[in-house]
Write a protein that binds this DNA or RNA. Structure first.
Lengths: 142, 142
DNA sequence: CTAATTGTAATTATACTAGTTACAAATATT
DNA sequence: AATATTTGTAACTAGTATAATTACAATTAG
């Protein structure tokens, strides 16, 4: 249990919200679809709320809504809200500065990893929750 | 200590090998540059050898070499050799098939993650170990 | 007032990681 | 042939991130 699946769950949650825009969805109900504990859902909803992507309401008729139209929420928004910094890791210990390679490899690596991460994020930015909801709907109809 | 830095170390190791093509580099020597334990280096060298990127020789004059020209080894080669499948994780437990979203979200997610991962890998494929070695050299000279 | 719901802290079990020790297998040098 | 050095791996350890779970205060509709 060491692999981060928060992004996948965030996409799932927001897809549910996109398909139920009229009534608030409770964390318990969403958890039933995701097949996990409601607290796990609330934690991710909390991160999404901090990013302004969803709103939640306490109380007996409470639950969560998308804060914007599904077409105006990209997967990159979710990714950033939830994964904080998924960037590939650098050295655990700083390399040896007395070796020419050790002394200069880190900024070179940072440059490489930034390029790779940027390409990935660009793809995620092209897809909206609306697209995801439509894809789910299309598969359900088929 | 849960973040994977094998790719970063693999780039470091192969950069060292690219700048010392004439003599074999021992895992002990490389470990001194990376600032880690020689066994960690040997483990990564072993993965690279399985992918045909380096060759190693045992014995008193042993050590490792690049198996190809640095320009012919891409960072994608290293990434694949070392990270096996770094792809972003899906749900921990399979979602609820009785919910329309739960029943159809997984293939949609796979499609999304594949696109994102492919974009990242395309970037890594554009960069060679030769490029990395040149960048390190340039910084060392500056 | 009551019941239902969110928000969050605390705890737990699991798994992955790098680091480390240990040692057999291989090999160049003498 | 003997020796010293190096790789290749297995086994183990400590540290840490993760999801799941329990618990409970705060909020709110009816």
């Amino acid at each position: 249990m060491a692999r981060n699946c928060r992004f996948a769950v965030a996409v799932h949650i927001t897809a549910v919200l996109a398909l139920h825009r009229d009534t608030p969805a409770t964390s318990d109900w969403i958890a039933g679809s995701v097949n996990t504990n409601p607290v796990v859902v609330r934690r991710i909803l909390s991160a999404l709320a901090k990013a302004g992507l969803v709103t939640s309401q306490r109380g007996i008729a409470g639950g969560s809504f998308l804060a914007r139209d599904p077409e105006d929420i990209s997967l990159l928004d979710l990714y950033r809200a939830v994964d904080e910094q998924e960037a590939q890791a650098l050295h655990h210990q700083p390399p040896n500065p007395k070796c020419p390679v050790g002394a200069h490899i880190v900024p070179v690596l940072v440059d490489i990893l930034t390029k790779a991460e940027t390409a990935k994020e660009k793809e995620l930015g092209r897809i909206s929750i609306g697209d995801v909801a439509a894809a789910v709907k299309a598969r359900a109809a088929a």
